[in-house]
Design a protein around this nucleic acid. Structure first.
Lengths: 337, 337
DNA sequence: CGAGATCCCGCACACGTTTGCATACTTGCG
DNA sequence: CGCAAGTATGCAAACGTGTGCGGGATCTCG
């Protein structure tokens, strides 16, 4: 069915090796035969069989991407960046979605590692030990998570949290709540620690940890009532989805945003601009985050002996929208509760 | 580095072929040797090399998915469904994103076809001729688009539009606008035709075609002013993103939804529940749509001689939220304009 | 006890490509 | 003109697996 190198060789009147060389190392073949081979190859619609090539070279020309949830806009954007950069680097990209089940992720990675040369892994919740095991079985690049000395793309969470809290303090807020994500989430722990640190820098500022919630809209909905009861005048949510959930439930409860409570999200997903009130958020260009993951991975594939890279340049950007405003003079909910 | 069949064979004291058979056809090998081979294989962590197997069998164990935009929640959901079903069917899945550039899609498909056994293609805007060419070069399953007799998963657009318009008519609306998507979009044309058909069934109902807009939020923003000027009391948008753009701009213009204008979207993406007012939308379970695409494709891969399948069972569901309401007695914008 | 049937298993080839090595040919210089 | 150096090309061996075919052993039955 498909045309192979032998067919081309026969038609062009050369050997199979010459066909192979004509495409791979054009300067090792005489100009006139080169032209003849290339012409007939093009004419016959010849493309080298990647499977056969891979068997020789040991390279599959593909990288993998494993994320917890493809429908989550956070990972959608990362995925887009990965795909974009991988294609530019000559790699195809495979994906897998663990349905937010960390225990499934290990198997996913193992399955996938048989198909690809390396994997970009977004696994916020799997234990370190599992990740280390996986790293011994295949080439990994971690995104949005540190795990020992494993190559990774890191986000400067402290920077992001600081920008959010500085914004809130500038608006006059001194009692700020944090709505956490999953307990096992690396970045949620990072952000809580960062929030505590920033609060500690300002003795007049109190940080209230509202606990852990699901990283979806439903988590924010669940957290809203606790938030209202806490008396905080501003809240930093684990991510934008949680923040949107907060907005929804606060509206139901008749709490005005930002008049009564200011809300800041993290990630700045596209949806943040569409809510009402539109959500103030700190975010990094997630697409770049995916790109950086690919860069780290292909760097490692090209030179496996290189020291593990830690991409740490991705800093946050504060986008102020409608969900944050100055502290209302005396309308703190605490006094009315 | 990696352990291969020869290593296992040596340790187990059998030939390579026996190792191969033990894993592929367990009933063709004696029980005790089977157990011995399987144990040593497991013990040594042996997994057959997929590349070598693929060279023999001609199967790569992977399918591809090509979509216009991975960040678009519509395709995110389809992607999730595809990945889910493919894994269940024993296939890995590769993705590619054309960045909404139909001319790039053909090349994407060609590149990808070298890596996979077949491709699920979401290409609403590429010309029929291009799709037919591609179908001759590789196994295709189309999603959300008809193209000759090519196997496809089709959505019953007429059903969806009818449900949306019936809802609006029941609320009293008689002047209904349609905000179209890209001119070349197959489903946008389908939906416009369906809207015209439904309107024609009711002589008292007028359909106003507002023209073509980008299938994003920005398209809806652009269409909103035209909508206001049109005097329609209700609008059906090409998709939810456009509808959300309408909501945003209408709010800016001080037009109340649903008091002044009712808005219905299509697709029922997760974001639709989060806007304010929350968006009424007709949608199909997009995840199922992706799953159906995989079913069609693997059916074709298993039995290439089978007649092309046309999956047509996916019907729409109306989800009423806050963006639609009864026609206000006399407050039609037309009279105030 | 022997002949045929049955059942396992190993041998060897194939899949399509890459690549080290050898060879034939060309070229340049003495 | 002859020899050495260089160059272009073909040969053949891999890469790791699947699989048809044949041989040998065991079993069954007359």
């Amino acid at each position: 069915m498909a045309v192979n190198a032998r067919d081309v060789a026969r038609v062009a009147g050369v050997s199979v090796s010459t066909v192979s060389r004509a495409l791979a190392k054009p300067d090792e073949v005489a100009p006139e035969t080169l032209a003849r081979v290339l012409d007939t190859a093009r004419g016959m619609g010849y493309h080298p069989n990647l499977t056969a090539r891979g068997l020789i070279t040991g390279h599959r020309g593909a990288i993998g991407l494993v994320v917890p949830d493809l429908e989550n806009p956070f990972f959608s954007s990362v995925t887009k960046g990965v795909q974009n950069r991988a294609r530019a680097a000559g790699y195809a990209v495979m994906i897998a979605d663990s349905d937010e089940d960390p225990s499934q992720e290990a198997d996913l990675v193992r399955e996938m590692s048989r198909h690809v040369d390396g994997i970009v892994l977004c696994s916020p919740r799997a234990p370190d030990s599992v990740i280390h095991e996986l790293a011994q079985e295949c080439v990994l690049a971690l995104v949005n998570r540190r795990c020992g000395d494993l190559p990774s793309v890191l986000i400067d969470n402290l920077d992001g949290v600081r920008k959010a809290m500085t914004h809130l303090r500038a608006l006059g807020h001194r009692t700020i709540a944090y709505v956490g994500g999953p307990v096992m989430s690396w970045s949620s722990q990072e952000r809580l620690a960062a929030a505590r640190l920033v609060a500690a820098e300002h003795p007049d500022t109190e940080l209230i940890d509202l606990g852990s919630f699901k990283p979806y809209v439903s988590g924010g909905v669940a957290a809203a009532d606790v938030l209202i009861a806490s008396g905080a005048t501003a809240v930093l949510a684990y991510n934008d989805l949680v923040a949107l959930g907060l907005l929804e439930r606060l509206r139901q409860r008749g709490v005005a945003v930002p008049r009564d409570i200011s809300v800041v999200g993290v990630d700045n997903i596209p949806m943040a601009a569409l809510s009402s009130p539109a959500l103030t958020s700190v975010g990094i260009p997630l697409v770049n985050c995916g790109r950086a993951g690919v860069d780290v991975l292909v760097g490692l594939l090209r030179d496996p002996s290189a020291p593990p890279t830690h991409h740490h340049d991705l800093s946050f950007q504060l986008v102020v929208r409608e969900s944050t405003g100055p502290l209302a003079a005396k309308s703190g909910l605490r006094s009315t509760a």
